[in-house]
Amino acid sequence: MSEPLLRIEGLSKRFGGFVALDSVDLEVQPGERLGLIGPNGSGKSTLVNCICGTLQNEVGSVRFQGKALDGMSAHERTHIGLARSFQLPRPFASMTLMDNVRIPLIYTVQARAGAQRTLAGLDVRCRELLAMVGLDGKARQWPRDLTQVEMRKLELARAVAAEPKLLIADESMAGLSHSEIDDILALLLRLNEQQGITVILIEHIMSAVMSFSQRLAVLVSGRKIADGEPADVVNDPEVVRAYLGQ
């Protein structure tokens, strides 16, 4: 078996007396599509924050391509190929959509290459990225003009602009209609199959997770209680109890 892209071992995180993550182990293989589910407050967002460096974990290790991430700041993790979308979209409100996707191009892609391309030269790439999510018509508009689903798409376009190896989509579909969900799912699938980006999908909407994921992991109260084939996992008695027991 090859070296996993992401390897999490014994990861724990406390907030005061509250245990948000309790010794979580998780591996993600290159090119994989992993679904991560769990009830509200089960620690999914904390896990994302610990992987991406928004929070620093005190116990356990996170390795990305064999490299330990401990002590690395969030932007350094973005530079080495980790990208995320936020659960509640966080666009740069004072910038046009073009400039929103331009930021990772300047600060991640160019910084990574060490290249000093001019700012204007990036316009083509910005348009491409917006076209990829179907927002090219609104390139010169501001985030405040967007609908919910467009906001999620911008969030994903900005994350993909950083040319990541691993993309963590944190509840990109909550509150959207069926057709909008299909839209986003198709987009994520294209990113995975055509660009080879590994995707962790964190989601509540079971139909979406089931159709997308090759593997499914379940977090409950900060502990990983199941990890495997999606069909097996949803029939796991412990998972059923955790979901129905609430």
């Binding site: 990208a83 409100a93 004072s94 331009r102 930021i103 700012l119 900005r158 602009a161 950083a162």
Partner: peptide
């Protein structure tokens, strides 16, 4: 204002978490 630096500054003003996630070394 018209440089990479200016863009970076604006991301800090708008949203520091999103800035870091986009690779901006905010500190």
């Amino acid at each position: 204002e018209r440089s990479r630096l200016g863009f970076g500054f604006a991301t800090i003003r708008d949203d520091e978490l999103a800035a870091e996630a986009s690779g901006v070394p905010t500190l």
